[in-house]
Structure formats: structure tokens, C-alpha cells
Design a protein around this nucleic acid. Structure first.
Length: 764
DNA sequence: CCGGGGTCCATTTTT
DNA sequence: TGGACCCCGG
């Protein structure tokens, strides 16, 4: 295959001529470290795949000598498909092209014994991890009310993200966490994983680091192997991933990272923007190539996005441009509350639809997944087809996880977590008491639960009934284990689920979701057929926990801003742009300016998803965990440039067109009190809670529908007595353009938009 | 072992 | 407001 590729090396391949200058440079700079800064919509994927194809086409190396890393399975799949297409190659399965985690797992399985695992180790999911931490906290008598397992686990995960093994930490690093004993818990957790012959996601990388650092021969082997390294979404790498790459790149120094610092939105998960910002220092002699020509969005959308992101500090800096026309302005719309917002979006979608738009070209992007609800309700009422991206995943479902536990235990008999999960599912009379005994025996003899069970049934420690029940179960497992080699795995799975009584358990179940669960189990077995072995299937499930997108109909997409990265739509609704929700108060509270900047990058990501039109909306009243809260427009609304935006004046919620503060010099947005003045010291809560009002605020003001309920705004004077539908009477104490500070008689001082109050004498 | 009822708590989630 | 979780009673 490589011969035929290199034979063509003399002529310039057709794919090169399709690239613009910067893209071509990025494809052709094959040697040494390269950082490709690829702004949104600048053809990043094309560059990545073309570069990979080019490496092969020019005969630089063989497919097996390239390490190509992505973050998502989807990205890996797409790259495989596109490269295969470019080169007319079919066989890409053996390539080192995949996610960090899958590649690390592949390496680790080859050398598992060097770090104390067997190569059939289990990869735990979040649920297993949590149960493990819970057990440890309990055993260590740490109050899990005060230190919930999920909090402790997330700290451990952040340590892992940073490449910190327990021995690199001191007790003091735990601070107060888990009563100051978090590092101890971490150490125990790691020990426990080893005895379970298991890894969590973080370990896949962490163990690799240990492997490379402690075993030079192994690292040298990979240095020889990987002549070229390609990395996608570099801005999202964490420290462990960075170290992993750096160790591997030490051999040839041919590393090409593609990313966009402005789209780094996973800092809360351990991603370090610093990795991309420091690239030149980390990889001396690096070439930096900027892709700045955008092929996706109109001029107005691009200008809006650029202006917002320009407010961030510490960027590498790019200037996106397009030859496309300015197009429609970005629309900004204020509404009374979430319900009105959903209604507005629904109407707009229907208008688009009447104009011939496909629903699949429309997306609604939310900051939090809880926001989907109001839209779903509205869309159901309208009969508007929609899909929510990012719901519960197939492999996370209870019945699937149970079924998987049976199979995992067959695969790895020391998988205690799997054992615990299924020992009494279906009910076998093996409850707490039995399990406690098994744990005791297992701990004393330092053996897995399954082995302990084998011992226990030979004694009379259990009540006869439990003993028989357990013996039967073990017998079944022995029987199934004997079939593994000779039975096709989908068939085996079916047998296990039937003979264990698991399928029957759901058949007997009369609750509404039982039939669905049985369906899912069938689907699971069908899915297995696509894999060569049980082991391969289990690996797939652990690493590729994704839902199959069923029914590709014409539907509107509802998803979080995070979920939207990498996607694009003709029309994008950016909803809930309110202080506190977006930028999210918690992000700012916990991470200060960094948090705010990450939120701003989310705004940038959101805007740049749009090809033709972007519509931003915010509401004045948001229901937040049950109670109503008054909201102010997001500062990001202010940051939109006036000439790319059209504020919909009839809404009234933004006052008179001419007095839209954020766009002028006199308004509230540009004033230092709000615009750029946010800091750790001076935080203004985004939402003013109205605890006293459990009811939805009225949708009409003085008999005028909310969208047109404008009272001019800005006409109030300090000291004037006013009435607010929700907060009641109060006096204006300060005024910044449309933004009034009012001392309410019942609820104290709040900031509200002028259009939401009426003079006290007009209240009624 | 189950369900009722009280309590507490509410981002984002590529693998 | 609603969901997840826990405790206790049957």
C-alpha cells in the first residue's frame, strides 16, 4: 500500500490545491514541533486529516508510525473516515489513531504487568469509582455527609489530571478535605484499584506516565515507533496528557498540535489552557501557524464573536476574517421570563420553517441542561420535533450496567465491584449479611470476593439458604466461564442473562420502564455482534460510552454550549444570557477571573456555531430552584458590538433603541460599575432572589403583553417611588441608564431594569 | 426488602 | 420546583 502511495509523490496531490495558504503551510510543515492555531470554522479538521494523508502520501512514514490523538471518539472516527477517503485506503483499524484514553489503554494493556496490573484489567466508570470512594470513606470513618464521595473523587481526579500520584503529594495538599486525609484516601483508592485489577480513566494516562518514566526500554520502543505525532483540540489537554505527549515526542520532536485557546472550555475538568499558551517554550523551535480565514459564519456573526472574545486577557490572539457578506445582524432579544423565551424561540423557529429552513439546521444552545425543560414543554405544545443532545447514555443505564457487570466478572474474576453489583440481582437472598461476610473473608485472605465466595460455601458460616444460593451462583459462573472460549459472545451474553434470571427479573417487573429495559438488553446483545471478542466489546463500552443517534429526522437540536463545540448550524439560538446563569455565578465564585474568561469562551464558542444567524436572548425573571429571581442581561450582551447587532426594541426590556446602554457611552453596560469592573472583591450576584414570591410573575404589565410592555425606561429619578410586579413598592436609590437600583420596602435593595417598574401611582 | 416521606441540593461532563 | 438520597416503618 505504501508503495503505491509514494509512487505518486512526484506530482502535487490534488488535496493540497484545495487548501488556502495557511492551511497548506500547516499541512506541509511536517518536521519539528508545529502549533496550528485554528480559529472556529477555519478548516481545522481538513488540515488535520490532510496533514495525516500527506505524511503517508509523501512516503514519510508508514501508517503505524503515526500517533494521532483526539479527545472524542467521534473526532477519531471522523478522522479515520476522512483519511481513508482521501487516500482510498480501507484499513485504518490498526492505526494509532484514537482518543487519549483509548491509545493509553492500548499501550497499557501491552505492559500492564510492569505497573502491577494484568492485561485484562477493567476500566471503571464513574459509578464504580464513586462506590469505591464511598466504601473507603466509610472504612476510614470519614463523615460522608461532610465530605461527599463525589467531592473527594473529583479532587482525586484533578490530582490525576495533573499527573500527581499519591507519592507526589503530601498530606498537606489535602487541606481540610476529608478531614485532612484526602491524600490517604487517594493512596488507598489506588491500592484498591490495583487489587481489583482495575483502572479509572485518569489511571490510563497516569500509569502510562509511570510506565514511560520507569521503563526506558518501553519508552524507547515507542520513540522508535511514533515518528510523527498529531494532536487535536490541544487547548483541552490536561497536564497528564501534556506530559504523556511530551514524553512520546522526545524521540523525534515531530509533534503537531492543533487547537484554539479561545475555545478552551473544560478547565473545570482539568484542562490547562496554559498548555497551548506555553507551546513555544515547551517545544523549542516550534512553528506557529494561524488559521484565521473563517469559512463558516457571516461577517456580523464573526464580528460579534471576535468582539466578545477580545475582552479576554492572555490570549494568543487571532483575527478571524471572512469573505462572506455581513449577513443578518445578530439579534438580541429581552423577554419577561423563561416561558416567554421558549415561546419566542418557538415562534422564530416556526418562521424559519415557513421560510424553508430545515429543523436540523437549527440549534438552541443553553448554559445548563436544566434549561431544556421549558423549551421541551413549549415544543411539545407546538408539536415541534426536537432532540435533546446529552441525555443519559445508553451504557450508563442501570440494566446495561448490570448486564455488563456479569460479563465483566466473567472476564476478570477479581472485579469485586461487578460482583457486588450482581450478586443479588436478581434477588437471591444474598443481602448485606452475606456480603459483609464475604468482604471479611476476602480482606483476611487478600483475595477477590468471588474467590472468597468459593471458600465460604465450603464452610457453615452462612445460613443454609444463602449458602445454597451462593453455591448455585458460583456454579453458574463456572459453567459460563467454561463456555467463553467456545461460544460466540453475543450468544454467551444472552445465556448469562437468561440463566442468571436477570432477564426474567425485568419480565416480571410491572413498572412502566421495564419493557424499555428489556429492549435495551436486546440492543446490547445486538451491539456485541460487531466485536471480535468479549474483551474487545468490554473495552469498547468502557471507552466509547456513547449513544447511538437513532432516527435522523428533521428535528431542532437542544444542547448545552459545551455540547455544541465542534458543531455548526444555520441558525443558533443563544438563550439565557443573564448574569448569574451565563456567565455562571458559580464558575465566577469558584474560579474568579479565570472562571469568567472561560464563560466568555463559551459565549465565543456559542456564537461561532452559527452559519447564517444568531439570536441571543435573556429574560428578566428566571425561576431558579423553585423561587423566582430577577435577572439582569449578561455582561456578554453588552460586549456585543453595536454595529453587528440588532436589539429588538419592541421588547421594551432594553428600553428605547437609542438608549441601549451597552452600545453607547452613556449606558449601564460601558460604565465601570458593571462593564469590565467585575472582580473577586466586588461581585454582584446575578440574580436577586424573591423568596417571598413563589408564584410566577404576571405576564402583563398594565394590561400590555410582556413583549411590548415598555414604559420608556430611563425616565425614573433617584428618590422616586416605584412599583415592581414581583418585589412590590420601593424607592429608586441609584440609576445607571436602564439599570435602576431600588430599595424595596419588603425585599431590600435590588437592581432591576427600568422597564420592569412603573411609577408607584400607576401601580394597580 | 420495599416504599413513603423527609431532607438537602442544586453548572458545564469529550473519556 | 423537582430529583436524589437516606432513614425508618411495615
Amino acid at each position: 500500500m505504501s508503495e503505491s502511495i509514494s509512487a505518486r509523490a512526484s506530482a502535487q496531490p490534488a488535496y493540497i490545491s484545495k487548501l488556502n495558504e495557511a492551511q497548506r503551510e500547516a499541512v506541509e510543515a511536517l518536521d519539528g514541533p508545529v502549533l496550528v492555531l485554528a480559529g472556529a470554522g477555519t478548516g481545522k479538521t481538513r488540515v488535520l486529516t490532510t496533514r495525516l494523508a500527506h505524511l503517508l502520501y509523501t512516503g514519510r512514514c508508514q501508517p503505524g508510525q503515526i500517533l494521532a490523538v483526539t479527545f472524542t471518539n467521534k473526532a477519531a472516527r471522523e478522522m479515520k473516515e476522512r483519511v481513508a477517503q482521501l487516500l482510498g485506503l480501507a484499513e485504518v483499524e490498526s492505526w494509532w489513531l484514537g482518543t487519549f484514553h483509548s491509545l493509553a489503554a492500548r499501550i497499557l494493556r501491552r505492559h500492564a504487568e510492569r505497573i502491577g496490573l494484568q492485561s485484562n484489567f477493567t476500566i471503571l466508570d464513574q459509578d464504580d469509582q464513586l462506590r469505591l470512594v464511598k466504601q473507603l470513606l466509610q472504612a476510614e470513618q470519614i463523615d460522608d455527609k461532610k465530605w461527599p464521595a463525589r467531592v473527594v473523587l473529583s479532587v482525586i481526579e484533578r490530582w490525576k489530571d495533573k499527573g500527581l500520584t499519591p507519592d507526589r503529594l503530601s498530606a498537606a495538599d489535602a487541606g481540610e478535605l476529608a478531614g485532612g486525609r484526602a491524600v490517604e484516601i487517594y493512596r488507598l483508592y489506588q491500592q484498591r484499584l490495583l487489587t481489583l485489577n482495575a483502572c479509572d480513566f485518569g489511571d490510563l494516562l497516569l500509569h502510562c506516565l509511570t510506565l514511560f518514566q520507569k521503563h526506558e526500554d518501553v519508552l524507547a520502543d515507542y520513540h522508535r515507533r511514533f515518528q510523527y505525532i498529531l494532536v487535536d483540540e490541544y487547548q483541552d489537554t490536561n497536564v497528564a496528557q501534556y506530559l504523556w505527549l511530551r514524553l512520546l515526542a522526545q524521540g523525534r520532536h515531530n509533534i503537531c498540535c492543533v487547537g484554539d485557546d479561545d475555545q478552551s472550555i473544560y478547565g473545570w475538568r482539568g484542562a490547562e489552557v496554559g498548555n497551548i499558551l506555553r507551546f513555544e517554550e515547551d517545544f523549542p523551535g516550534a512553528k506557529i501557524i494561524r488559521l484565521e480565514r473563517n469559512y463558516r459564519s457571516t461577517g456580523n456573526i464573526l464580528n460579534a464573536a471576535s468582539a466578545v472574545i477580545a475582552k479576554n486577557e492572555g490570549r494568543l490572539g487571532k483575527t478571524l476574517w471572512t469573505e462572506d457578506e455581513l449577513g443578518e445582524p445578530v439579534r438580541v432579544r429581552g423577554l419577561w421570563d423563561g416561558e416567554a423565551e421558549a415561546r419566542f424561540v418557538g415562534e422564530e423557529i416556526e418562521k424559519l420553517q415557513r421560510g424553508g429552513a430545515q429543523l436540523s439546521d437549527i440549534a438552541i444552545l443553553l448554559r445548563t441542561s436544566a434549561q431544556t425543560r421549558e423549551f421541551e414543554e413549549r415544543f411539545i405544545t407546538l408539536g415541534l420535533p426536537y432532540r435533546v443532545v446529552g441525555g443519559p447514555r445508553f451504557y450508563e443505564r442501570l440494566e446495561i450496567r448490570d448486564a455488563m457487570a456479569y460479563l465483566r466478572l466473567l472476564q476478570s474474576t477479581s472485579d469485586d465491584l461487578a460482583f457486588e453489583r450482581i450478586v443479588n440481582k436478581p434477588k437471591r437472598g444474598l443481602g448485606d449479611a452475606t456480603l459483609r461476610l464475604l468482604h471479611q473473608v476476602a480482606r483476611a485472605a487478600e483475595i477477590p470476593l468471588l474467590a472468597a465466595a468459593r471458600q465460604v460455601i465450603e464452610t457453615d458460616e452462612l445460613r443454609p439458604q444463602a449458602r445454597k444460593s451462593l453455591r448455585d451462583l458460583l456454579q453458574q459462573f463456572g459453567h459460563w466461564a467454561g463456555m467463553v472460549a467456545s461460544t460466540p459472545h453475543p450468544e454467551l451474553a444472552e445465556i448469562v442473562l437468561d440463566e442468571s434470571g436477570y432477564t426474567e427479573m425485568w419480565q416480571q417487573d410491572k413498572t412502566a420502564d421495564a419493557p424499555g429495559r428489556l429492549e435495551n438488553l436486546k440492543e446490547l446483545i445486538n451491539a456485541m455482534a460487531e466485536f471480535d471478542s468479549l474483551a474487545q466489546f468490554l473495552e469498547h463500552v468502557s471507552l466509547v460510552m456513547e449513544t447511538v443517534d437513532s432516527g435522523q429526522q428533521d428535528q431542532v437540536t437542544l444542547m448545552t454550549l459545551h455540547g455544541a463545540k465542534g458543531l455548526e448550524f444555520d441558525s443558533v439560538f443563544l438563550v439565557g444570557w443573564e448574569e448569574g446563569l451565563f456567565p455562571n455565578q458559580r464558575a465566577m465564585d469558584e474560579n474568579g477571573l479565570k472562571g469568567l474568561e472561560e464563560e466568555r469562551r463559551l459565549a465565543y464558542v456559542g456564537l461561532t456555531r452559527a452559519r447564517k444567524r444568531a439570536i441571543v436572548s435573556f429574560v428578566a425573571n428566571r425561576r431558579l430552584h423553585g423561587s423566582w429571581a430577577a435577572a439582569l442581561p449578561s455582561r456578554f450582551v453588552d460586549e456585543l458590538p453595536e454595529d453587528a447587532v440588532e436589539v429588538e426594541s419592541e421588547s421594551g426590556l432594553y428600553g428605547n433603541p437609542g438608549s441601549f446602554g451597552g452600545f453607547g457611552s452613556a449606558g449601564w453596560g460601558s460604565g465601570s460599575a458593571w462593564g469590565g469592573g467585575w472582580s473577586r472583591e466586588r461581585q454582584t450576584p446575578g440574580y436577586q432572589r424573591a423568596q417571598a414570591y413563589g408564584k410566577r410573575p404576571p405576564r402583563y404589565i398594565d394590561g400590555v403583553a410582556e413583549e411590548v410592555a415598555t414604559l420608556g425606561g430611563g425616565g425614573y429619578k433617584v428618590g422616586e417611588r416605584v412599583f415592581h410586579q414581583k418585589f412590590g413598592y420601593g424607592h429608586v436609590t441609584a440609576r445607571e441608564g436602564e439599570r435602576l437600583t431600588i430599595e424595596f420596602e419588603k425585599t431590600g435593595e435590588k437592581k432591576v431594569m427600568a422597564s420592569f417598574v412603573v411609577p408607584a401611582d400607576q401601580a394597580g
